[in-house]
Design a protein around this nucleic acid. Structure first.
Lengths: 161, 161
DNA sequence: TAACAAAGTTAAGTTAGACTAACTCTGGAG
DNA sequence: CTCCAGAGTTAGTCTAACTTAACTTTGTTA
């Protein structure tokens, strides 16, 4: 009945949680200095955010001793990771260069509707699980470069309506 | 040589400029109360932002008398409008409902790389200027609903690699 | 033409999220 | 053990955006 999930995280909070998750994945632990470096901010900002996240029960934080994710935090992190990947893959699919795709996914992932993410994921899946590169992608690339589409497109007018 | 465009606007500033543009388009003028209502904030916030935007020369603002866009402001507004439309159209193309598409476009439009926007616009154009609904969109809709793709996809294995 | 309601403004205060400077732990070397 | 370098923290400030409450303009109406 009552949703478990009445959590309204800020974009910034989400960024911290993702970063902590990623660092723990990679190194087994997440140090203040590394979190700061990853997010491009200074250590004191990290400390104060860790307190906030601890209060909200996303992380277990002990002064001077380090930080770990709670179950709640970990589950949020995974959700965010999925969103991030979906958006990034999608942009790459369209031909956006890796760096931009990464950066833009970061920007987009925090506020976009779940519905929208789901659509996008589905689309990526649709393309990625295809037995061959779908023709339309090749057509799109051609169109981008030359402004022209394959000649057969003009012939299939019976499909129209 | 020197870029005319060394302007670093905040997301919020961009939102005000877009809103002002839209209101002027629609009513011929933009009142403080209407800007506030559109953005879901209170009038005093608008007043203080108008001062800031005036200083930066995006609008001409006179206390109690109203606000208009400068050439600079208008050109930014048009650029933002194009981004917004591109993103929204794109989401609609994927089947995201109009309301979500509108909201998500608002969120996305401020930070996403120009390159990315260009790709997305191009893709929308590619689809919209096609003589018929491109088959892949129909296939995608089917795939979404049923998890299945048209049988001919499996046959075109020669395309593979 | 005086007055008043509605629109707009000012002043003062809040919150999120960052910063710098100065402090305190912690763990490893001697 | 002691001490110290470096990691982490605290305290105090700043800025962007917002708020509410109280004030000022403006234009319309009797």
């Amino acid at each position: 009945m009552a949703r478990t999930d009445e959590t309204e995280l800020t974009k910034s909070e989400e960024g911290y949680i993702e970063t902590i998750y990623a660092l723990i994945e990679e190194h087994g632990f997440a140090r203040v200095a590394d979190i700061a470096k990853t997010l491009g901010i200074k250590p004191p900002s990290v400390t104060s955010m860790l307190k906030r996240l601890d209060c909200q029960n996303f992380v277990k934080y002990t002064r001077y001793r380090g930080v770990t994710l709670t179950t709640k935090g970990r589950s949020i992190a995974r959700k965010l990771g999925r969103r991030h990947r979906a958006l990034k893959d999608f942009l790459i699919l369209l031909g956006v260069p890796e760096d931009s795709a990464e950066a833009d996914a970061c920007e987009m992932e925090h506020k976009v509707n779940p519905e929208t993410i789901r659509k996008i994921s589905k689309f990526v899946e649709f393309v990625q699980t295809a037995p061959n590169t779908p023709p339309f992608l090749l057509h799109f690339k051609k169109y981008e470069k030359t402004g022209k589409r394959p000649s057969h497109c003009k012939l299939e007018q019976k499909n129209a309506e």
